[in-house]
Simulated assay, not measured.
Amino acid sequence: MTRTAPHPRTAVVACATYLPSTLRTTAETEERLRVENPTLTLPTGLIRRITGVENVHVAGPEAQASDLAVAAARRALEQSPGEVDLLIFASGSQDLIEPATSHIVSERLGTRCAVFDVKNACNSMLNGMQVADALLAAGQYRRALIVTGEVPSYAVRWRVDSREQFLRSFGGYTMSDGGAAVILEAGEAESPEPSGGRGILGSRFLARSEHWGVGTIPAGGTVNPHSEGGAYFDMDGAALQAAFASVGVGLVAETLASIGYGVDDLDFVALHQVARPYHDRIVEVLGVDPERTLLTVAEHGNLASATLPFQLAEARAAGRVGPGGLVALVGLAAGISLGAMVIRL
């Protein structure tokens, strides 16, 4: 029998988040919409009933995406002190079109390392970890800091000129500001088996880009370089949900099967969450024990690319998963894209 060579693993040595302390309740969101749109008919509690969201975090009016990323990064570096030789800013938000926001984060942190940005909507952080994992496994770097700073509150449309525009802006009312940081470290070969060892065991990603137009912030690029009309969420929620439903979440089972595991082997599953009903449906389809997930969208809103590291950090802090635990991170993003990553802590 031919034995495969030992597989080096990229270990997750730190995971930290930062959420602004200011909360905006869904009731306050609805009240502001009524005040700014006197002709808008908005039944009391509509947003909460549809999405299950009670609160969202809101950064200050001067806050930048880099501010939230830096705050989370400092917490991660407290968990695992030491120099990093790669810094990736992985976020749907950004400070400027140029330069890459990673430069701003690096300057603030005082690091002297290679930097670049990764951008893929709510899957940005997961894709950033994917890229860092590959670079560490290739031996190009030893220790990578992947950060996100999401400030979607800047893209909320408060004044709407029609019911249709309100519905296309709906997703923004449940988006939350936040930062997250993960430190990955190159590990030694630990096991000759694909499923063995601590670290990132496997990941898979796919995209169905024919659906890119159902969820956008159509400003700031070459299509609308000067953001005429403003940089606001524009989303066909029903079409986005239908697109995700048509793709399904079989990617998760495929990723687990490729390393010799099944859903029942997982100790914790972090799922991207846009609304309570959609979260519950994904849990059901995956066949995951709900007790092995963590509902965050109700109290914290949709944290965009910070969602998965936030859930992982919260689960670890609560003792729901610890060293040796098997974790899956499941990402869903506009575009649309899906991703699954399995980690042994």
Rank of each mutant, 00 (worst) to 15 (best):
98 E>P: 00
312 L>P: 00
135 L>K: 14
170 F>W: 08
21 S>G: 09
22 T>C: 10
50 I>P: 00
193 E>K: 01
113 C>V: 11
274 V>S: 12
326 L>K: 05
76 A>V: 11
239 A>Y: 11
107 E>A: 15
50 I>R: 14
250 G>D: 15
302 N>S: 13
342 V>I: 15
253 A>M: 03
123 N>L: 15
286 L>Q: 05
216 T>S: 10
8 P>I: 09
29 T>Y: 11
116 F>V: 06
52 G>M: 05
133 D>P: 02
310 F>R: 00
59 A>Q: 09
313 A>T: 00
219 A>W: 04
163 R>W: 04
263 V>L: 14
234 D>H: 14
328 A>N: 02
234 D>M: 07
79 Q>S: 05
181 A>S: 13
344 R>S: 10
270 A>P: 04
216 T>Y: 03
9 R>P: 00
209 S>D: 04
337 S>K: 01
111 T>H: 13
25 T>F: 14
251 L>I: 15
6 P>E: 11
121 A>E: 02
156 V>R: 14
5 A>V: 08
261 Y>P: 00
226 H>S: 13
103 H>W: 07
34 R>V: 07
330 V>Y: 00
174 T>G: 08
243 A>G: 11
122 C>W: 07
293 T>S: 03
275 A>I: 04
296 T>E: 05
75 R>Q: 13
284 E>Y: 06
133 D>R: 14
267 D>I: 08
248 G>K: 13
40 L>M: 06
134 A>S: 14
322 G>P: 01
293 T>E: 02
308 L>F: 05
298 A>G: 05
127 N>S: 14
243 A>H: 09
220 G>R: 05
292 R>Y: 05
156 V>E: 04
122 C>T: 10
216 T>A: 11
149 G>D: 08
179 G>D: 08
14 A>P: 10
52 G>S: 11
82 G>Y: 15
288 V>T: 13
332 L>Q: 06
162 S>Y: 12
11 A>M: 08
240 L>K: 01
47 I>R: 08
262 G>R: 12
332 L>V: 09
316 R>Y: 03
97 I>C: 08
44 T>L: 11
230 G>L: 04
38 P>R: 14
133 D>A: 13
7 H>W: 12
335 G>L: 02
6 P>W: 02
244 F>K: 00
5 A>I: 07
67 D>V: 15
137 A>I: 09
252 V>G: 00
160 V>K: 12
